[in-house]
Amino acid sequence: MAEAAEAPVLVFDSGIGGLTVLREARMLMPDRRFVYVADNAAFPYGDWPEEALLTHLLALFERLLAEFRPACVIIACNTAFTLAGSALRARFPATDFVGTVPAIKPAAERTASGLISVLATPATVKRDYTRALIESFAAHCHARLVGSRYLAALAEAYISGGDVTDEALWAEIAPCFVEENGRRTDIVVLACTHYPFLANRFRKLAPWPVDWLNPAEAIALQARRVLGARPSAAIEGANRDIAIFTSSDVRAEIKRLMQGFGLMVADAAVR
C-alpha cells in the first residue's frame, strides 16, 4: 500500500488508451508518481450492459482506492466516466476524480463550417451525458455522433504491433465526413483515449483535412489543477511508475509496450 506522503496519481482505462493521457500528465507533472490501471479483464466496455458495467466499476474502484490511496484519479476513458463519474464521486467523496468527456465544447468553439463529428464508442454515443454536452455547447452546430464498435480494439492491435488495414480503419471513420450545402466537416472529436494512437493513420485516410481533436492535454492540465500544491512523491529510480492489469492474461507485446512507456508491469493482477 502506498504511503500517504507518496500518494500516486492513478490513471485508469479499460485498456491501453489511457497511455495517451499518461504521456501528457507526465510531461506536465514530472515530479509525480503514477499507477496505470488497465481493466483488460473487462475490455471492451462497449459490450457490457450499462448497469452491469456500473456495478463492476464501483466494485473495482473500492479495491483500487483501498490499495493505492491515490492523490487523485484520472479516469482516462469516456465510456467509464460518462457512465460512472457521478456515482464514483458520490460513493468516494474523499477522492478527486478527473474525468474524460467528449471535447464537444472546444470543437464547437473552433469549427468554421459548423459541421463537427464525435467519433466514440457506441456506449459513449448513446449516453445522455454526451447528448447534453451537444445541447449545452454545440446547439448551433451540426454534430454527428459516430459510434465505432471496433476502433478501440483496432487501436490496441495497432499500438501493440498488429496489422491493421486501411480498409478496416476507413470503415470506422468514414461516417465522420459530411458535406452539406457547400460545407464540410472540419473537426472530428476523438472521444475515446485509444483513438489518438491512430491519428496519423486517420489523417492519411481523410478525404479532406480536418482537425482531429485530442483531449489528452486538457485532461492532464485539469489533473494538475486539482492536485495543486499537494506534496509529490520522491523520485526513486527510472521505474517508479507501475502498470497493473485486472487480468493476468496479458500479451507479451502489451507488456513490452508498457515497459516502453517506462512502466514497471506488476506481477499480480488486481482482483
Rank of each mutant, 00 (worst) to 15 (best):
196 P>W: 00
15 G>T: 13
118 V>K: 05
268 A>E: 15
220 A>T: 01
132 A>S: 14
194 H>D: 10
260 G>L: 10
59 A>Y: 08
100 T>D: 06
152 A>G: 13
39 D>Q: 07
149 R>A: 14
175 P>I: 03
128 D>K: 11
269 A>K: 11
172 E>C: 08
88 L>A: 04
178 V>Q: 05
134 I>Q: 03
33 R>T: 15
96 D>C: 13
212 W>C: 07
253 E>G: 11
209 P>F: 11
71 A>D: 07
182 G>E: 05
74 I>S: 09
97 F>G: 03
192 C>G: 09
248 S>E: 15
32 R>I: 11
43 F>W: 12
88 L>K: 09
215 P>V: 02
198 L>T: 00
23 R>N: 14
227 L>R: 08
205 L>N: 05
253 E>V: 10
185 T>K: 10
187 I>M: 09
232 S>R: 15
79 T>V: 08
249 D>A: 15
170 W>V: 00
179 E>L: 07
34 F>H: 00
173 I>D: 01
178 V>N: 06
175 P>C: 02
99 G>T: 02
225 R>V: 13
48 W>Q: 00
69 R>P: 02
33 R>D: 10
223 A>E: 01
11 V>N: 11
154 L>V: 12
48 W>S: 02
161 G>H: 06
80 A>K: 00
119 L>R: 03
59 A>Q: 10
165 T>H: 06
47 D>E: 12
73 V>D: 07
30 P>V: 14
156 E>H: 08
90 A>V: 13
146 V>T: 00
68 F>L: 04
222 Q>R: 15
192 C>A: 10
12 F>Q: 01
31 D>P: 03
7 A>N: 08
157 A>N: 14
257 L>I: 13
101 V>D: 07
229 A>M: 15
69 R>I: 04
109 E>V: 13
252 A>R: 14
193 T>P: 03
119 L>N: 04
24 E>R: 09
234 A>D: 14
111 T>Y: 02
11 V>R: 02
112 A>M: 12
107 A>R: 01
242 I>F: 14
73 V>E: 03
145 L>C: 07
46 G>I: 07
163 D>S: 13
204 K>D: 15
17 G>M: 05
14 S>K: 09
170 W>Q: 08
61 F>Y: 06
135 E>D: 15
195 Y>A: 01
108 A>K: 03
17 G>N: 06
186 D>P: 01
66 A>S: 11
174 A>V: 01
12 F>S: 07
166 D>H: 07
225 R>N: 13
91 R>F: 05
180 E>A: 09
237 G>C: 01
202 F>R: 07
175 P>A: 08
139 A>C: 13
9 V>I: 14
110 R>M: 14
238 A>E: 11
131 R>V: 09
133 L>S: 08
